[in-house]
Design a protein around this nucleic acid. Structure first.
Length: 423
RNA sequence: GUGGCCGUAGCUCAGUUGGUUAGAGCGCCAGGUUGUGAUCCUGGAUGUCGGGGGUUCGAGUCCCCUCGGUCACCCCA
């Protein structure tokens, strides 16, 4: 093998057709749903001052060990974005748009993780955020947006799980109760969980070890420690989901990875992915985050969906299958002049997708390429055609050529003829 | 960061207890028709067997290191 000097770094990959086109189409569907819901797009830098992300909570792994950070040539401490919410909040604080500010995005995030199925160091997300309103109906509308998106691409085998983490004031009281419980059951917890307990007790609820899960199952639940306001907001969200006919499961042990969440949190969990990474996406409220980034004390809520995982789930469910982007016409030219170049460009200029072969290959080879390209029509130009001022237009059906038709047409009628043969 | 499994042609893989010039299918290219795509037939190209070191008369096969992939934990999209 001619060994290449370089390959993609760990956890990254080249996305080629037909997958690349599939990603593009997926984003188009999401963009359409977001715009329909009145969201405007935002494009933020892929890297930010590292402080933007550190404010997400130093206790989280995303910040403490997964940040792609470096110092640039100006001595600035920079980090590749591990998610989008922090950038959106930073942008809000920087530009102070009118509220409620509704914005959607698409792009790559970066985390220095150990790669595995459905988890890459560079991953694609789409998402939407609303800054500047406490109204729980917005939480519901965001969930509905994601729900419509999943439904529209054909996904069915997933569950929406929701929870409320309460307000800033509720968290410490619950955390205290939880810590007390975990301390009392310390001996039943895994070594890892005992460490996690100290850093962030909530996350112990999330452990996948069977022993830990058993402890978590009997732990005190957040809903018993919510303020009346937080309870009312959560009830409103659930009522909204009921009204819209969106199925959900309240999961008191749903804690999300970032520390900034308050009140509503939610996650879309796939059942068709047998991999460990089965969360298609999630989100929630982050009522203190904008302020933590030096902005006004505006609340926020949003979600992000993993494009890669969503497509993995689509694979499993056999939906949103890749489409071949084939050209409509294939120009076969066996003369040495520029007739083939001219014809193919004329077709393209007329809005007809067209391909051709290069390197002066034989007619047989070019017809083979035409067949393989998936084109519906071959335009054949040989010395006879050039002399007569015509081109041969031939229909192509995959495989068998018996039913195909070929006719000579005036060169000047090329576009007209081809157009009449295409659907 | 921790652990299991894996790494042979473009792709999917086979390579017996270490033993002569490393194979198959698919794909690709050419010819079978000096103007024509399926199928069929014939022929052809491509591998420092992931990399380095070691054991041995001899290593794709054994050992060590390393890089990469994969799956799981941790964590998360």
């Amino acid at each position: 093998m001619v060994r290449p000097d370089f390959q993609t770094p760990p956890g990254t990959r080249d996305i080629t057709e037909p997958d690349a086109g599939r990603v593009r189409r997926l984003v188009e569907v999401f963009a359409d749903e977001a715009v329909t819901a009145g969201f405007g797009q935002i494009v933020t830098p892929m890297f930010e001052d590292v402080g933007v992300f550190v404010r997400l909570g130093e206790a989280s792994d995303v910040v403490s060990k997964e940040l792609y950070s470096f110092k640039d040539k100006g001595g600035r401490e920079i980090a590749l974005r591990p998610e989008f919410t922090a950038s959106v909040c930073r942008a809000f604080a920087q530009h102070r748009p009118l509220t409620p500010w509704k914005t959607w995005y698409v792009g790559s995030g970066f985390r220095y993780d150990k790669p595995q199925k459905g988890r890459y160091r560079q991953f694609e997300q789409v998402g939407a955020e609303v800054v500047g309103s406490h109204d729980p109906d917005i939480d519901t509308e965001l969930i509905a947006l994601a729900w419509r998106f999943f439904r529209r691409i054909g996904l069915a085998d997933f569950t929406l799980v929701v929870n409320s983490l309460g307000d800033a004031g509720d968290r410490p009281r619950y955390q205290a109760a939880l810590t007390e419980y975990l301390e009392a059951n310390r001996s039943r917890l895994s070594e890892q969980a005992q460490k996690t307990m100290v850093v962030n007790p909530l996350r112990v609820l999330d452990s996948k070890r069977a022993g830990d899960a058993a402890v978590a199952a009997e732990a005190p639940v957040m809903s018993d420690h919510l303020s009346p306001e937080a309870t009312a907001a959560f009830d409103r969200v659930l009522a909204g989901l009921d009204t819209l006919g969106i199925d959900y499961r309240v999961e008191p042990r749903l804690v999300r990875g970032l520390d900034y969440y308050t009140r509503t949190t939610f996650e879309f969990v796939s059942h068709s992915l047998d991999a460990a990474q089965n969360a298609l996406g999630g989100g929630g409220r982050y009522d203190g985050l904008v302020e933590a980034l030096g902005g006004p004390p505006e609340p926020g809520v949003g979600f992000a969906l993993g494009v890669d995982r969503t497509l993995l789930a689509c694979d499993e469910e056999g939906v949103f299958t890749p489409a071949d982007d084939t050209v409509a016409v294939w120009v076969v030219c066996t003369t040495d002049d520029l007739a083939g170049l001219e014809a193919v460009e004329e077709l393209r200029s007329s809005g007809i997708s067209a391909g051709r072969a290069y390197d002066g290959r034989s007619m047989k080879a070019q017809m083979k390429a035409a067949n393989r390209s998936g084109a519906e029509i071959a335009v054949i130009i040989g010395s006879q055609e050039v002399e007569a001022g015509t081109v041969a237009v031939r229909t192509l059906r995959d495989g068998d050529r018996s039913g195909d038709q070929q006719q000579q047409v005036d060169r000047r009628d090329l576009v007209k003829k081809v157009r009449s043969l295409l659907p």
